[in-house]
């Protein structure tokens, strides 16, 4: 009886979790006439891909997709590399200012950064980086460096120092020891950090809508934001855009779920 109740509750929660995603998927596959008609249909009478086609034919979604992809791939790579270097020094050296640096990084994760939004716009304008993917990329790197550095530090701390020392005894320099011995052990963690950073960039909205308004530099969230007009939203296209933009992140998050959970809980639970 208790097991039955438990199963029922879990099933109900699963349904509640999955339903919104199901609903947006169904909406994206319905003919227009069925999206806005009564009674609501919980499954389309005929499955159509017209909204997806419109997205790519009329809304130039292909460009936005490529833009999002470029910015996210590049920014995530830079952030991960910076994290690999910075995390290593934070984990393996004690030096003056180390604690202050950690604090300075952590603070950026805690306080509302929207106060920086206006000045950032001016800065990007001064650097002539408005409406440029490169500009967006730089800001994303800055946004994610604290996260990647701190999480990498955690990964390094789990690797015994002895492993490196053994390599150094064998005559390898510190850097060589790091590259040949430590990095391979860290690979899953590095991959997880990369993917997490990628998803954050892929999803980012406020910075992107502040810096980008030209069609050829829009990322997916910026484009979707411009689909929202005061009174009317074309929910067919919007649903299709949602599905297209969420699929890569779903796949990627599923792949690194274990690491996210570890990374998240490590700090809170250990401390």
């Amino acid at each position: 009886m208790r097991r039955l109740a438990k199963t029922a509750v879990l099933a109900a929660w699963l349904l509640i979790t999955v339903f919104p995603l199901y609903w947006i998927l169904v909406t994206s596959l319905k003919p227009k006439s069925e999206i806005f008609s009564m009674p609501l249909r919980y499954w389309p009478s005929r499955v159509t891909f017209e909204h997806y086609r419109e997205l790519f034919e009329f809304a130039d979604f292909g460009t936005y997709l490529v833009n999002s992809l470029l910015v996210s791939l590049a920014a995530a790579a830079a952030v991960t590399a910076i994290g690999v270097l910075g995390g290593y020094t934070l984990a393996r050296f004690s030096f003056p200012g180390r604690g202050a640096l950690m604090l300075a990084f952590l603070v950026t994760q805690m306080i509302p950064l929207f106060i920086a939004l206006g000045p950032l716009y001016l800065l990007m304008s001064d650097l002539d980086l408005l409406n440029r993917l490169a500009g967006l990329m730089l800001v994303y790197v800055a946004m994610l460096v604290p996260f990647s550095t701190v999480i990498m530090r955690g990964f390094y701390e789990r690797i015994p120092v002895a492993l490196e020392e053994a390599a150094q005894v064998d005559g390898a320099s510190r850097l060589a020891a790091m590259v040949r011995v430590v990095i391979p052990v860290m690979l899953p963690g590095i991959a997880a950090t990369y993917i997490f950073a990628f998803v954050q960039c892929w999803n980012e909205l406020f910075l992107a809508i502040t810096f980008i308004d030209s069609e050829d530099a829009k990322t997916i969230p910026v484009a979707m934001n411009s689909f929202i007009t005061q009174y009317d939203i074309d929910w067919g296209s919007m649903a299709a855009a949602t599905v297209v933009s969420v699929i890569p992140t779903l796949v990627m998050f599923a792949a690194i779920r274990r690491y996210i959970v570890e990374g998240l809980t490590a700090g809170a639970v250990k401390g």
């Binding site: 910076i82 300075a104 990084f105 950026t108 950064l113 106060i115 920086a116 939004l117 206006g118 000045p119 950032l120 800065l123 730089l138 800001v139 790197v141 800055a142 946004m143 460096v145 604290p146």
Partner: peptide
């Protein structure tokens, strides 16, 4: 990066 694009604008 953090100094230029986070702390400076803040």
């Amino acid at each position: 990066f953090v100094a230029l694009f986070t702390y400076w604008p803040m």
